[in-house]
Amino acid sequence: MNGADTAWIIVATALVLFMTLPGLALFYGGLVRARNVLSVFMQCFGIACLMSVLWLAFGYSIAFGDGNAYWGGLGKMFLNGVDEDTMSGNIPEVLFFAFQMTFAIITPALIVGAYVERIGFAFVMTFSGLWMLICYAPVAHWIWGGGLLAGAEWSLFADGVNDFAGGIVVHQTAGLAALIVAFFLGPRRDKGKPPHNPGMVMIGAAMLWVGWFGFNGGSELAANGSAAMAITVTHLSAATASLTWILWERIRYGKSSLVGLVTGTIAGLASITPASGSVGPVEALIIGGVAGIMCQELCSFVKNKLKIDDTLDVFAVHGIGGMFGIVMLAVFGHASWTAQLGGLAVVGIWTLVTTVVIVFVVKAIFPIRVGEEDEYTGLDLTSHGERAYDMTS
């Protein structure tokens, strides 16, 4: 065991959990109307709890067990055969389990942004649990667990897909799933109200930014120069995307908004995620600079052209951002075009098929959407019996 590496991954694990709780919860919570903010908190917190238990029971084994090209099997269910002395590389395997658990938490939590303000809580929890096990965990095995896309002897591509911290595993899967759920759910009945608390959005985004140092820097699984470079390029991409987002916003609309600024931050962070283990500072500036404009344009495209109410732009920011970072690795010569594009295609098809099936199965058991009166009153009161504020908007 390497003490320095172990200490750093303990910190990184805390940072990635911090991204979901409270970072993502505050970021999404501020973007909805006041009568729905607690429902967003409830969804994020509930998902974090459920994914933790399911990751222990089945998810970790499916993703990182000693299976075959397609899945890891069930040999490590409930951490069977793993104790405090078992190693994964030069860190304790139970720590590797915990670090990867925080990824399994945030990935389905990202999808929350697509369906806020109109979805049933029972559907959210059931869908999220099944989706993590059936869609996310196998993809994690394919790319990070030595499976189908990892460049091992049974890989589809000799070079293997280069996805350092989750451009495909996290952001593409979550982004596509978000688009599909939003499509089947249908649009909100009242889309005209602005975010109820932009300050809360900024606080959540700031927490995500800090937490992302653990997300990307921790993915090196070592306390070394490569982890330091991953953190540096992560920061630079986020900063650059924030600036290009508000510049483009100013050109298009005449004003730069706080919500736009911090959404640009998230676009830059998502885009650099798969590339953070390979690129340098100048390449990070290019990735972030393009992402700030590209993801903003995709937000408009999804809502105005595709007519899909992906409420908080999960597909445009996370999905497109993550896929863009995957492609840029090939552009900069850090990965094979065949592997990168092939990986996007394989995982894209898998995500589309599994997500559609899970949606239909779960909505046959639990209503996918709340009633019109419940939506008008707000999910805080109708689904959870609480209010965030004395006055609602």
Rank of each mutant, 00 (worst) to 15 (best):
T6V: 08
M19K: 07
G30D: 11
A34Q: 05
S39R: 03
V40K: 13
V40H: 13
C44F: 06
C44A: 15
I47S: 03
L50D: 06
F64N: 09
G67R: 05
G67C: 08
W71E: 12
G73E: 02
M77L: 13
E84V: 10
D85P: 01
T86G: 02
N90H: 14
S128K: 05
L130P: 07
P138K: 00
V139Y: 02
A140N: 10
W144E: 14
G145A: 09
G146Q: 01
L148G: 06
G151T: 12
V161Q: 09
N162E: 08
N162I: 07
D163W: 00
G166T: 03
T173A: 14
L185F: 09
K191P: 03
N197K: 08
M202I: 14
V210S: 03
N216E: 08
G218R: 03
N224R: 08
V233H: 00
L243F: 15
S276M: 01
P281V: 11
V282G: 04
L285C: 05
I293S: 07
E297L: 12
F301D: 05
K303W: 15
I308Y: 03
D310A: 12
V314A: 13
G321V: 01
G322C: 05
I326G: 04
V327Q: 06
M328V: 02
W337R: 08
L341C: 05
V353W: 08
T354N: 12
K363E: 15
R369P: 12
E372L: 15
E375C: 08
G378S: 11
